[in-house]
């Protein structure tokens, strides 16, 4: 896949599915599409292959949100069971299967998190060992060279490079929202920042990621 930075800014009228797809490798999308087609016919082996391809990333995503290995494993299992029961909830016109599955996995993990009403916010902000919750612990070390990562054809490398390029404040707020599953109010409390500041940091952080990964341009201007 070409580096998103070198691609021209998309026209506003560019078909929606295409702009979202360029982030994922075409060959991976083709494999996923073929497996999903088989799943819709009741092919269990195909569901197993999809599980093998995506469950490790789903579990990596669910772990920092739920902070409980058993719960995260159950969350992922239920995710794939639901995919088996309702395969038509995925529509290929919405973009790559991998991206869609990760959004569903995150929503499911956050729903599960919020059902754990007995767990107070402090439980999420402070780890079981009493150490402050550090979302960076859940990220891969971007070394050796962010520039090299950004030029990589691997989507994961490019996403890591894009995250590292954010300001510390943007990255902290965005990662608490995404990987911590916290609401904006919870992040503002956790970071002792005004709510409006947190919203701006998350929004501008996402815009910067989109510029680097999909070629997004907000009217051709930099919003930061």
């Amino acid at each position: 896949m070409a580096d998103g930075r070198s691609q021209p800014a998309p026209q506003q009228s560019e078909p929606a599915a295409r702009t979202g797809r360029r982030l994922f490798a075409p060959e991976d999308q083709a494999i996923d599409a073929a497996l999903m087609e088989r799943v819709t016919t009741g092919d269990k082996a195909a569901l197993g292959e999809l599980y093998d391809r995506h469950a490790p990333t789903c579990l990596a995503l669910a772990m920092p949100i739920l902070r409980d290995r058993r719960l995260a494993e159950e969350c992922v299992q239920d995710l794939f069971l639901n995919l088996w029961q309702r395969p038509h909830t995925y529509d290929s016109q919405r973009g790559a299967f991998g991206g869609w599955l990760m959004r569903v996995a995150r929503n499911r993990a956050i729903d599960l998190l919020r059902r754990q009403r007995e767990r107070r916010f402090a439980d999420f902000a402070v780890g079981a060992e009493g150490t402050p919750f550090d979302p960076e612990l859940f990220l891969v070390d971007p070394a050796p060279d962010p520039a090299e990562l950004a030029a990589s054809s691997d989507t994961g490398d490019r996403v890591r490079a894009a995250l590292v390029s954010l300001s510390g404040e943007q990255r902290e707020a965005l990662e608490l929202a995404y990987f911590g599953g916290l609401s904006q109010s919870e992040i503002a409390e956790r970071l002792n920042r005004p709510l409006g500041t947190v919203k701006t940091q998350i929004r501008t952080g996402m815009q910067r990621l989109a510029r680097q990964l999909t070629g997004y341009r907000p009217d051709g201007t930099d919003t930061e």
């Binding site: 973009g95 991998g98 990987f179």
Partner: peptide, 15 residues
């Protein structure tokens, strides 16, 4: 769709 793609790709940064 571009922002949804970014949101969907972020977990790929994880081990």
């Amino acid at each position: 769709v571009q922002f949804e793609a970014v949101a969907g790709a972020m977990p790929l940064a994880l081990d």
